[in-house]
């Protein structure tokens, strides 16, 4: 921004940025729609069912039909709710879920904002997502919704600490808090990626990510068997759809971060292998990143189909008494490895 920046300059810069934002957000929305389809299909096959197969060939148009249905439905605002906060809660939920994508690098040059402290920025924004849940539950003025809110607030605060510690491990290993530099620090081969030296932190980050996005088996915030639908019990139509979008956008974000931080991001998995590396040289980095993200997302769905919901006290115990001590222990160990310049990761 120059001191003499005229209105026209602003508009040009602004529209270029808006265009780039659209390039990220539009595919993300499409990915969210088809992630719901993939979820229903995958869990269907895991439970020996077919899943959605009526709308369009093999049910491919099912997410479009669902979106249309939600658009048509009426948004019901409960009479005794706090109207203003009731409407603002879904926005509070989706805004951080989308804003976090601003610093996600999709390739060595493909990033909207190459912020220096991008890892911290993402951690800060993902921690803001809880406001949507809290405000929704409170504004609804219903006991079920409020119980969901209380559960979610305590759960997210608990798992954020373990998540933050896991990220400290990553930045210790990479020597940077810029996501692009973290990926480049993993280059070499599949064994140079951080999943191997930081294996416990990788697992903890993944599980905390599930807890942070309120996904099964940590979805007590909406636990339908005991509190109907938790914080969004009174939401309908588009207001509900926005919560839904935020949850799935967050899920894709966590999966992308998992692949960026621990699975080498856009780096080819065949790096450093004599014959295969030149063979797969032509594949663009974005494809690898998307493939890794899809794999992590598959694990999300697989876990949902496999495990029953955690009991609430067990969730708290796992977060505070198991994950945090493990991360602290591994950080001390890793600090020692960095001091000794243990190869091939920390030299």
């Amino acid at each position: 921004m120059t001191e003499t920046g005229s209105l026209l300059d602003w508009m040009i810069t602004g529209s270029i940025i808006m265009f780039k934002v659209m390039i990220i957000v539009m595919p993300l929305m499409l990915a969210v729609a088809y992630l719901t389809y993939a979820e229903r299909k995958i869990i269907g096959y895991m439970q020996l069912r077919i899943g959605p197969n009526r709308v369009g060939p093999r049910g491919w148009l099912q997410p479009i039909a669902d979106a249309l249905k939600l658009l048509m439905k009426e948004i019901i605002v409960p009479a005794k709710s706090n109207n203003y906060l009731f409407v603002i809660a879904p926005m509070l939920s989706i805004a951080p879920a989308l804003a976090a994508w601003a610093v996600v690098p999709f390739g060595s040059e493909l990033v909207l904002a190459d912020v220096d402290a991008s890892l911290l920025y993402i951690l800060a924004l993902t921690s803001m997502g809880v406001y949507g849940v809290i405000v929704a539950g409170w504004a609804t003025n219903s006991k079920y919704a409020f119980l969901g809110t209380m559960r979610s607030a305590a759960q997210i605060v608990a798992y954020e600490i373990a998540m933050g510690f896991a990220l400290v491990g990553v930045l210790l290993a990479a020597g940077s808090i810029n996501l692009g530099e973290i990926v480049l620090a993993q280059s070499g081969s599949l064994l140079h990626w951080f999943w191997l030296p930081l294996f416990p932190l990788f697992i903890i980050y993944f599980i905390s990510g599930i807890a942070e996005t309120n996904r099964a088996p940590f979805d007590v915030a909406e636990g339908e068997s005991e509190i109907v639908a938790g914080f969004h019990v009174e939401y309908s139509g588009m207001a509900f759809a926005v919560f839904f979008l935020a949850e799935y956008a967050n899920m894709i974000l966590i999966a992308t971060l998992c692949s960026l931080l621990f699975l080498g991001g856009w780096l080819s998995p065949f790096e450093g292998i004599p014959l295969l590396q030149p063979m797969f040289q032509w594949v663009p980095g974005l494809v690898w990143l998307l493939a890794k993200t899809a794999m992590v997302l598959f694990f999300f769905l697989w876990l949902r189909a496999t495990f029953p919901r955690y009991r609430y006290d067990q969730i708290m115990r796992l977060g505070w008494k198991v994950f945090i001590p493990i991360t602290i222990f591994w950080l001390v160990l890793e600090g020692g490895a960095v001091m000794l310049e243990l190869g091939p990761w920390f030299d």
Partner: peptide, 9 residues
């Protein structure tokens, strides 16, 4: 970012 992370988050 620390302000947002610690106080807001």
């Amino acid at each position: 970012i620390a302000l947002v992370l610690v106080y807001v988050g």
